[in-house]
């Protein structure tokens, strides 16, 4: 299994990570080596073998869906973590480019 630079570019776009051309080349090489190694799993017959997604065996762990107040000091701390605030609201670039200029 090998991964081309073009495929790396596509995955990086999906994962929202900007890569330099050197990084794209390096990831293509190292990930290809990792995928090549993963081929050993093809030796294993997994016909009718169920998947393991969790190991505890717990089922349907419920809790009441209740609204809890956020204490004002916690709210302040959360707001203070935000990279850009205007009037205590999170500021982000426009989702639709250019729309804000209409």
């Amino acid at each position: 299994m090998s991964l081309s630079v073009e495929e790396v570019k596509k995955i990086a776009e999906l994962a929202r990570i900007e890569l330099t051309p050197e990084e794209e080349k390096r990831h293509a090489e190292t990930i290809s080596a990792v995928l090549e190694y993963m081929k050993i799993l093809n030796e294993v017959d997994t016909k009718d073998v169920p998947i393991t997604a969790q190991v505890t065996g717990l089922e349907n762990v419920f809790r009441e869906d209740v609204v809890r107040e956020c204490p004002p000091e916690t709210r302040r701390k959360l707001l203070d973590q935000m990279p850009s605030l205007e009037m205590d609201e999170l500021e982000v670039p426009g989702v639709f480019n250019g729309l804000e200029e209409i």
Binding site: E7, V8, L14, A15, I17, R26, H27, I31
Partner: peptide
């Protein structure tokens, strides 16, 4: 770099 690699492998 390693975090990026893991995200790329996982996304793939």
């Amino acid at each position: 770099e390693e975090v990026k690699r893991r995200i790329l492998i996982g996304t793939y």
